[in-house]
C-alpha cells in the first residue's frame, strides 16, 4: 500500500549497482515462473491418461470351454475386440507349413501360441494397418481379411497380403487352468 522508500534519483545506472546481480535475480525469478507453469502443466496433461476405473478393467479372464473347434469368439478387452480362436488341425498344419514362406513380418506359428496349446490362438482383432476389425474366414489364406483396405492374414494371424505392416498382435496372456486364460 505505501512503499515508503523513495529516492529522487531516477538514474537507472546509479553508482554502486552491480548489473550482473540485478540480472541474476530477474533470471532466477523468470525461471521460477516457468518452473511453476511447467510443474502445473503435468497434472493438466496427465489427467487425459487412463483413469483408475479404466485401468481396473485392463485384465479379463476368459473360459475357453465356450469356444468349439473351428470357431472364433470375439470379446471386448480394453475397448478392442479380442479374437479367441479354436483352430482345426488342418489350419494349424497350414500355419506351420508357411513358417518359412516369404513373410512380411516373419514369425513362426509356434511363437504365436502357448506351448502345448496350438489349437488356441488369442489375437487382438485390430488390423495393423489403420485399426479396422478383420473378418474371420476371409482372404486367400484361410485366416482374416480386413474389409477396409484388403489386408489378408493367414490362419496364424500373420500378414500375407495388402497394406498392413505387421502380424495381428498377440496380447499378454496366461493359462490359469486348462481351459481358463487371463488376458492383460
Amino acid at each position: 500500500m505505501s512503499d515508503t522508500v523513495v529516492r529522487t534519483n531516477p538514474d537507472p545506472q546509479a553508482p554502486g549497482e552491480d548489473p550482473n546481480r540485478r540480472d541474476f535475480i530477474h533470471i532466477v525469478a523468470s525461471v521460477a515462473a516457468l518452473g511453476a507453469v511447467g510443474g502445473l502443466a503435468w497434472p493438466f496433461i496427465d489427467q487425459m491418461n487412463p483413469a483408475g476405473d479404466t485401468l481396473a478393467l485392463a485384465s479379463i479372464e476368459f473360459d475357453l470351454s465356450k469356444v468349439v473347434e473351428g470357431q472364433q469368439v470375439a470379446v471386448k478387452w480394453r475397448g478392442k475386440p479380442l479374437f479367441v480362436r479354436y483352430r482345426t488341425p488342418a489350419e494349424i498344419a497350414a500355419a506351420v507349413k508357411d513358417d518359412h514362406a516369404d513373410l512380411r513380418d516373419p514369425q513362426t506359428d509356434e511363437s504365436r501360441h502357448k506351448p502345448g496349446k496350438p489349437q488356441y490362438l488369442i489375437l487382438i482383432g485390430v488390423c495393423t494397418h489403420l485399426g479396422c476389425v478383420p473378418n474371420f474366414k476371409g482372404g486367400d489364406y484361410g485366416g482374416w481379411l480386413c474389409p477396409c483396405h484388403g489386408s489378408v492374414y493367414d490362419t496364424s494371424g500373420r500378414i500375407r497380403k495388402g497394406p498392413a505392416p505387421k502380424n495381428l498382435a498377440v496380447p499378454d496372456y496366461a493359462f490359469l487352468s486348462d481351459t481358463k486364460i487371463k488376458v492383460g
Binding site: 529516492r7 529522487t8 531516477p10 546509479a14 530477474h26 532466477v28 525469478a29 521460477a32
Partner: peptide, 14 residues
C-alpha cells in the same frame, strides 16, 4: 524472488 526482483526494478523510481 519476485519481491527482490520487484525491489530492484523499482529502486530508482519515486
Amino acid at each position: 524472488l519476485l519481491w527482490f526482483s520487484y525491489r530492484r526494478i523499482w529502486r530508482n523510481v519515486a
